[in-house]
């Protein structure tokens, strides 16, 4: 097992180098003079020159890369042009907000997705099954940002039950205060994943239920609930876990859109603002951070599979 983990870690090195090169190139593939674009019309020659020097724009490309990557490894991610802050601490704070949202949405998606899947599978072809699977299909096909806007109008404006933007009540912090603010963005973000998990759980359950050992268990006269929850579910969930792993990427992606709609102070808002403002140090920092995190999260997910599923060999 340890060997497997080490091998996977080593394999990450070229990937991370590749990622860093791609992220570095973002700045250099853009048309126009980056310094001029970043500082705008009223910029003086002096500040333009200063920025060019700060970004090392006069050096040959490979030297610029080495300078940049050395700084990144040293923890110096540069300063955001637009927000005038160190990029790394900014990215860390904002990522915490995104992670909170994504984890919350993930919990919703798994809880309700698996529940709906079980109900559908055990009551196959019933009205409930049809209704839930129809909803799952709908949920899967809705653009997440559009769903968010509609939920805002219903629950924020018409019913006035929930706040529609921000993360905390004015002047407060803390997870308890956050809960009310999490619900609408959380559900918007969770919907597509919830639908996918429900569909996967249903089909996986159905496959398991048909297998011999379940029939045996039933034949032994075990109560249906025991059969379903202690025998079938455990085995049915292995493929579901695969789907859940895949949702991490979707949740992180969707978070970008949901954050914009709900003014959630996450990394997505930061990134999109950075792109529109041509704030390259910020854009590079956010993308590099998210990609690196994602690579490691995927690694952890893979290792967890390896633990859970004895069929995967470590070699």
């Amino acid at each position: 097992m340890l060997n497997y983990i080490l091998k996977r870690l080593l394999a990450l090195i070229p990937v991370l180098i590749g990622v860093s090169i791609l992220v570095f190139l973002i700045l250099h593939l853009s048309p126009g003079d980056p310094a001029q674009i970043m500082l705008g019309t009223k910029a003086t020659q002096q500040s333009l020159d200063a920025l060019r020097e700060q970004l090392g724009l006069d050096l040959p490309l490979h030297q610029q890369y080495f300078q940049w990557i050395t700084n990144v490894l040293k923890g110096d991610w540069g300063r955001s042009i637009q927000l005038k802050r160190e990029v790394l601490p900014l990215v860390l704070t904002r990522f915490k907000a995104t992670a909170t949202l994504a984890v919350f949405a993930g919990i919703i998606a798994i809880t309700f997705g698996v529940l709906a899947g079980i109900v559908s599978a055990t009551k196959q072809y019933s009205l409930w099954d049809r209704l839930l699977m129809f909803l799952a299909l709908v949920g899967f096909c809705l653009p997440v940002f559009w769903l968010g806007l509609i939920l805002q109008v219903i629950f924020g404006l018409k019913l006035n039950w929930l706040p529609v933007s921000g993360m905390y009540p004015p002047g407060q912090t803390g997870l308890g205060n956050m809960l009310k603010f999490l619900i609408l963005p959380g559900f918007s973000l969770a919907t597509a994943s919830m639908a996918e998990i429900a569909r996967m759980t249903r089909s996986s359950m159905l496959e398991v239920i048909r297998q011999d050992y379940i029939r045996t268990a039933r034949a032994k006269g075990l109560p249906e609930r025991v059969v379903i929850y202690s025998h079938a579910l455990r085995n049915a969930l292995i493929p579901v876990i695969t789907v859940v792993g895949m949702q991490i990427g979707f949740l992180l992606s969707g978070a970008v859109l949901v954050e914009i709609v709900f003014g959630w102070p996450g990394i997505g808002t930061l990134m999109v603002n950075g792109i529109l403002a041509r704030d390259f140090p910020l854009v590079q920092g956010t993308i590099l951070f998210v990609a690196t995190t994602y690579v490691f999260v995927n690694l952890i997910v893979d290792i967890v599979y390896a633990f859970l599923d004895p069929r995967i060999s470590y070699n």
Partner: peptide, 15 residues
């Protein structure tokens, strides 16, 4: 290594 939409966003950031 990039979550789906983020890769697209990164590419658009460059192009």
């Amino acid at each position: 290594a990039f979550p789906y939409v983020l890769l697209a966003i990164a590419i658009i950031a460059a192009l």
